[in-house]
């Protein structure tokens, strides 16, 4: 923060660099975050040993082998189908399914991730467009605001995610297959935060600013383009970040019990059928990475757009 702006009169301290660096780590967020992540990893290893212990020792007992505690300890982190795989096992599996196979192969996690992300993106675009349109309508038409807004809000108490697979089945029976049904689920999930955020954003300019536009004799069209829309952008992007994360959740859940052949959700379900815990965990890790990637991408677009509109980043 204020580092680097050292006054020129002060004598540079020799050897002050190391405590300075450590102190900066300690005071900033990076140090604590790394500590928390390290703690999670340690807890994970301990849990892996504890949870797999009984399974491993029973198997050694069945095979009639004498096993020392040491042998069992190492075996708990090398099981084929452990209760909880150790982090390095997941890394090995990720390496095997991402780097060792061609990205087009059915065994490649990249293939599945691309399948899910494409549905996510299509749904996200549809949902955000719908959300923005609804918000514009709600802000401009009193009738819509009074009659539609309560339904937009109560539409979210319907656990739509829970019936996503059924919607996929119904859409499939009228001939819609593949990407589109999943995208529709994602769109339904992500229109809501966009509508709510956008309504808030479009109404962010206060009475004084709108009156100023009126004294310039601006039409309501001009007020929309030149005042309301620019003012709503921060709200819009905040909602878009939420929306793309739920959109991914929607796409994954839509793949669950519908016999989808590809996608991270199908991977989760297959793993759960055959007890392949390492496969489940590696699919989860990839899903988490996708979520992070998508949110960061929206953040980058926000930076570019804000800069292009002349805003201060």
């Amino acid at each position: 923060m204020t580092s680097g702006t050292s006054p020129t009169t002060s004598v540079p301290l020799v050897g002050a660099a190391r405590p300075g660096l450590l102190g900066k780590l300690w005071r900033g967020n990076l140090g604590p975050v790394l500590a928390v992540v390290a703690a999670i990893l340690v807890i994970w290893y301990v849990a892996a040993v504890l949870m797999n212990w009984t399974g491993v020792s029973e198997r050694f007992g069945r095979m009639g082998q004498e096993a020392t505690a040491g042998t069992i300890f190492w075996q708990t982190m090398a099981e084929d189908r452990p209760m909880l795989p150790a982090p390095h096992q997941i890394l090995v599996e990720l390496d095997k399914t991402i780097l060792d196979v061609a990205p087009t192969s059915r065994r490649s996690l990249v293939h599945h991730a691309v399948e899910t992300i494409s549905a996510t993106l299509v749904g996200f675009l549809m949902g955000s467009a719908l959300g923005v349109l609804l918000a514009v309508g709600i802000v401009h038409l009193r009738t819509l605001q009074k009659s539609l807004m309560p339904w937009v809000i109560s539409s979210q108490t319907v656990p739509i995610l829970a019936i996503a697979p059924i919607i996929v089945v119904v859409l499939g029976s009228i001939g819609l297959r593949g990407l589109i049904p999943k995208a529709i689920i994602s769109a339904y999930l992500c229109f809501f935060p966009v509508t709510i955020g956008m309504v808030k954003g479009l109404e962010a300019p206060d009475r004084l600013q709108r009156d100023l536009m009126r004294t310039y004799s601006a039409s309501s069209w001009e007020i929309f383009w030149k005042l309301r829309l620019p003012a709503s952008l921060p709200y819009l992007f905040a909602s878009l970040k939420v929306a793309i994360a739920i959109s991914l959740v929607g796409a994954i859940v839509a793949e669950l019990p519908t016999g989808a052949q590809a996608g991270l959700g199908a991977r989760l379900l297959a793993g759960s059928y055959y007890g392949q815990t390492i496969q489940i965990w590696s699919a989860l890790v990839v899903a988490a990475a996708c979520a992070a990637l998508l949110v960061v991408a929206v953040g980058l677009v926000e930076k570019v757009v804000t800069k292009a509109m002349g805003g201060r980043p």
């Binding site: 967020n29 928390v36 992070a292």
Partner: peptide, 20 residues
């Protein structure tokens, strides 16, 4: 300072996947 960024990150993840 350590938990909050991690918590924010996890809150955006598809947690539903841990169901199996």
């Amino acid at each position: 300072r350590g938990l909050l960024p991690v918590g924010n990150f996890v809150a955006a993840l598809p947690i539903i996947g841990i169901a199996p």
